[in-house]
């Protein structure tokens, strides 16, 4: 499943970048964070409670910052599991100046869900995955106040 989006943020690129690679900041935007374990600047584990309504469960996700070119580009991959399912997430963020002193953030996410959720929840999977991922990025955007 592929998702992407673009935001304008009223903050300088460097500030935005610093937030995006800070595990503590990002994890606050994750749905119902249960636990965060920061191993290093590049690696952290988050336990989040995610799902749709009462169909939810805890997912343990190991994040790794695999590409970092401050303040323009970052790539974060996560692998984890929950509700008898495996989740692989690859997100890429590219920042550029929006001209008015703000930042243009282009994000892309590639999500792969396997196992129980994928095999019995096909009908709802992609719309719900989209919802969760979009919310995450909207939350990050909102940290800076919305742009235009």
């Amino acid at each position: 499943m592929h998702f992407d989006g673009t935001f304008s943020i009223r903050a300088p690129r460097k500030d935005v970048f610093d937030v995006l690679i800070d595990p503590k900041q990002i994890s606050r935007c994750m749905p119902d964070l249960q636990k965060l374990d920061v191993k290093s600047k590049e690696e952290f584990t988050a336990v989040v409670r995610a799902g749709v309504s009462f169909i939810k469960g805890d997912f343990t996700l190991n994040f790794r910052l695999v590409e970092s070119e401050p303040p323009t580009h970052a790539k974060l991959v996560a692998r984890g599991s929950g509700i008898g399912s495996a989740v692989d997430l690859e997100t890429t963020i590219d920042l550029s100046d929006s001209g008015d002193g703000g930042t243009l953030m282009k994000w892309q996410a590639e999500a792969k869900v396997g196992g129980r959720i994928a095999s019995v929840g096909q009908r709802l999977l992609s719309s719900q995955a989209q919802k969760i991922i979009t919310q995450l990025f909207e939350c990050l955007r909102d940290k800076f106040g919305t742009g235009s």
């Binding site: 009462f54 169909i55 469960g57 509700i83 008898g84 129980r116 959720i117 019995v120 929840g121």
Partner: peptide
């Protein structure tokens, strides 16, 4: 907690362990 009435949707989801109230 979850209300149980006829359970025809809920119990199926619980058996598949997608829901676990």
């Amino acid at each position: 907690a979850k209300v149980l009435a006829g359970g025809q949707s809920l119990i199926a989801l619980m058996k598949l362990r997608l829901a676990a109230p």
